[in-house]
Design a protein around this nucleic acid. Structure first.
Lengths: 217, 217
DNA sequence: CGCTTATCTATAACGCTGTTGTGCTTCTAT
DNA sequence: ATAGAAGCACAACAGCGTTATAGATAAGCG
């Protein structure tokens, strides 16, 4: 490899390129493909770039986990609020589930890679979207209780289903199970059966156009 | 290392020693300590033992994941059946949660390492314990529905809480959350509030003696 | 402009990893 | 007793993350 045209100080985009290459490799080829030499080859640089723009593979992997949460937050932000906050939460739930199942390697990575103690609150900013949605349902009188507490129960259910589905023990019935458990959960939140059924119908109308399909690749 | 007294064909216990050393290393020092050379040193042999008794690190890791499910099943089998099947399920739930939180590295490993397609039903034999417990509650008229379906919902909830707790986002309130969500879940299974409260009281009596504490190490 | 300084990078090397090949030792079976 | 098989130690391979070193370019300042 000849040392030809090489920018020196003017290359903050190498960091972005590394991160995007890492995300693509993780999604398409799995975590084993995340090596310094492979990343360097993909970006067209040397392994030193990993140490210049990150502090090593550990920090790069952590940045990649954050990128995963950032993409999930972006997806959740695409869910537009309506006059039915419960339907909004349902649509967010489907977005969460669909996004996770479309990129299982990335989803698993997000909840695995921050095993280190520092900055435990990795996905909390993303989780705030769900809390806000639940808070609107509480304010509307549909849910009774503290928004964060209720949102946590929804998160636990979604996360449990997604991870077990990824592990291969749910035989692809994860989304259906999520709908069932989600309905029961919302009923335990104080919403009445008829309202839930109407919100399900309303949420269903917002889903079929493959709104959450694009990133299915 | 001199080649001194070395049994040839009469050593099926080397396989067990490797597996136990692997489990101990995983629990005490984390997944990074699972290397061929480290395992060989721990057992007092060479790295070739990994290839003699397993087919390589991949198969050894898979066997270790199975060992984790085997230990979990053993723990669940320690829960004695009583005349209150719902209380039995509650005690099993606490056993599941406590066992997982006592060895988070092993628990995470169990659901991660079978990423390969072959033999997806790794923990299904273990899961059968929960299904049987739920089936007794159904037969007793406490729960309404198909046992496997209800057990799956309990498993999803427990797994979601455990994994999020391990990830560090539940601030140690996992067990309390599990009790709350578990109660709501059982109520959605058709059990009435008073019966649930009585079963909780009955289950609580069987827990305090640190019945699930020994393996807390 | 000329010079210094800082930043980024390529190359090579270190110790580590999983894996494989080879040969020796020991047990089993005929 | 002899032939075969099986388990093991040792050495070597490519690949991994990481580090040290030196070269090349950009920016700052007289």
């Amino acid at each position: 490899m000849l040392s030809n045209v090489s920018p020196k100080t003017a290359s903050p985009e190498v960091r972005t390129a590394l991160l995007e290459a890492a995300a693509r490799l993780l999604v398409e080829e799995g975590p084993a493909s995340l090596t310094t030499r492979r990343l360097a080859t993909e970006v067209g640089t040397s392994t030193m770039a990993v140490y210049t723009h990150f502090e090593g593979m550990d920090k790069l992997r952590r940045a990649l986990a954050e990128e995963g949460f950032r993409r999930l937050a972006e997806r959740l932000d695409q869910v537009e609020g309506s006059d039915d906050p419960v339907a909004d939460v349902m649509v967010m739930g489907v977005a969460y589930f669909t996004n996770a199942m479309a990129n299982p390697n990335l989803y698993h990575f997000m909840f695995t890679e921050h095993s280190n103690e520092d900055e435990i609150g990795l996905g909390l900013e993303t989780f705030q979207r769900l809390i806000d949605g639940v808070a609107r349902a509480v304010e509307a009188g549909r849910f009774k209780g503290e928004a964060e507490e209720l949102a946590t129960q929804l998160w636990v259910t979604a996360h449990g289903i997604v991870t077990l589905e990824i592990a291969g023990v749910l035989d692809g019935e994860g989304l259906q199970l999520f709908a069932e458990m989600g309905s029961n959960l919302m009923r335990s939140f104080g919403d009445d059966e008829d309202s839930i059924l109407r919100s399900i119908a309303g949420a269903a109308e917002r889903l079929p156009p493959a709104f959450f399909g694009p990133e299915g690749k």
